[in-house]
C-alpha cells in the first residue's frame, strides 16, 4: 500500500512537470532545461509567502506562487525566448540552461540554500489497509493534479483561447493573421507551464524537501515528457508514471544513489526502441 501511495504522488509531481514541458514544446518548439529550477523556486516562493503571512491562510502563499509564475513566464518569454526565433536550435536550449543556473543561484542567495519542508498544517490522517498512512497533503496532491489536467483538457478543447492556443502551436503566422496576438499566447504558455511546475514544486516540497539538489526533479520531469512523447499531454502522464515506478523500484531494490540516473537509463531504453516516445509523433524527431 505504502508503495502505491508513493508512486501515485511521485507520478503527480512528475506529470505536472512533464505537462509544462509538453506545453512549451508544442507552443514554441523549445525544450526547457530550467523546469526543475522553476518548480523548486516556485516552492520556495510559496513557502516564503506563507511565512510572511504568518502561516494563517493558504491564499497568501498560493497567490505568491501564482504571481511568481506570471512574472517569470512573461519575463522569460518577452525578454528572452521571443528574441530567439530563427536562431540555431541550441541557442534556446542553452538560454534555458542559463535561466536554470540563475534560478539555482537565487536559491543560494535568497534562501541561503536552506533545506525546507513545506508544511501546510495538515497532519497525516487516514490509515490505509496495510499500515500505510496517507496525509491530507497527499490527497490534495492527487486532487490538484487531476484538477489541473482536467482544467487543461477543458481549456484546450472548449474555450476559444484554448483553440487559438492549439492553432498558434501549429502555425503561428496564420494565427497571427487571424488576429491572435502570438506573443500573448506564447507568454501564456510559459505562465501555465511555470504554474504547473510551481504546483509540482510545492507538492515535492511538502512530501520531501526543497533544496538546490531537488532541482533534479526537472530532469525526471523532462524524461517523463520524452518517454511519453514530447508533443503529447497524455504521454506526459504515462511517462510520469513509468519514471515514478522505475525510480521507486531502483531506490527500493537497487541503490538510492542510482535514482538520479534512473530516468536517463530509462530514456536510453525508450530512445532505442521508440525514440519519439509512447504517444508522440514520429516527425517530431527531426524538428529539434
Amino acid at each position: 500500500m505504502e508503495f502505491a501511495a508513493t508512486i501515485v504522488i511521485l507520478t503527480c509531481t512528475y506529470a505536472l512537470l512533464a505537462a509544462g514541458t509538453v506545453i512549451l514544446y508544442k507552443a514554441g518548439r523549445v525544450v526547457n532545461f530550467a523546469h526543475g529550477e522553476l518548480a523548486i523556486v516556485g516552492g520556495y516562493v510559496f513557502y516564503s509567502a506563507g511565512l510572511m503571512s504568518g502561516g494563517t491562510s493558504l491564499w497568501f502563499p498560493v497567490a505568491g506562487a501564482v504571481v511568481f509564475s506570471i512574472i517569470m513566464g512573461m519575463f522569460i518569454y518577452m525578454a528572452m525566448m521571443r528574441r530567439l526565433v530563427g536562431e540555431p536550435f541550441y541557442v534556446a536550449i542553452l538560454v534555458t540552461v542559463g535561466i536554470g543556473i540563475v534560478l539555482k543561484s537565487a536559491i543560494l542567495v535568497i534562501w541561503r540554500a536552506e533545506r525546507l519542508t513545506i508544511d501546510v498544517g495538515v497532519t497525516p490522517a487516514i490509515r490505509m489497509a496495510g499500515g500505510a498512512t496517507l496525509s491530507y497533503m497527499d490527497i490534495a496532491s492527487v486532487v490538484l493534479t487531476v484538477a489541473f489536467f482536467a482544467g487543461l483538457y477543458l481549456f484546450f478543447r472548449f474555450t476559444r483561447l484554448g483553440v487559438q492556443f492549439r492553432g498558434t502551436a501549429e502555425n503561428a503566422l496564420l494565427a497571427s493573421q487571424r488576429g491572435v496576438d502570438v506573443n500573448f499566447v506564447l507568454s501564456l504558455a510559459w505562465v501555465i507551464a511555470i504554474l504547473a511546475a510551481s504546483l509540482s514544486g510545492v507538492l515535492y516540497g511538502g512530501r520531501a524537501f526543497l533544496s538546490t539538489e531537488s532541482v533534479t526533479i526537472g530532469l525526471a520531469g523532462l524524461t517523463a515528457a520524452l518517454v511519453g512523447g514530447l508533443d503529447s499531454l497524455r504521454g506526459a502522464v504515462a511517462g510520469a508514471f513509468i519514471v515514478a515506478c522505475a525510480q521507486y523500484l531502483t531506490v527500493r531494490l537497487v541503490d538510492p544513489v542510482l535514482s538520479e540516473a534512473v530516468p536517463f537509463l530509462l530514456l536510453v531504453i525508450v530512445m532505442s526502441i521508440r525514440p519519439w516516445g509512447l504517444f508522440g509523433t514520429q516527425e517530431e524527431l527531426d524538428r529539434v
Binding site: I101, K104, A106
Partner: peptide, 26 residues
C-alpha cells in the same frame, strides 16, 4: 559575505553570462 551568497552569485554569473552573450553577442 555569506558563503552561500558568494557562491550563489558566482553560479548566477555563469548563467547571466550565458544568457546575455546568447542574446546580445551570440
Amino acid at each position: 559575505r555569506y558563503g552561500s551568497t558568494v557562491f550563489g552569485v558566482q553560479v548566477g554569473a555563469v548563467g547571466i553570462c550565458i544568457i546575455l552573450f546568447l542574446l546580445i553577442e551570440p
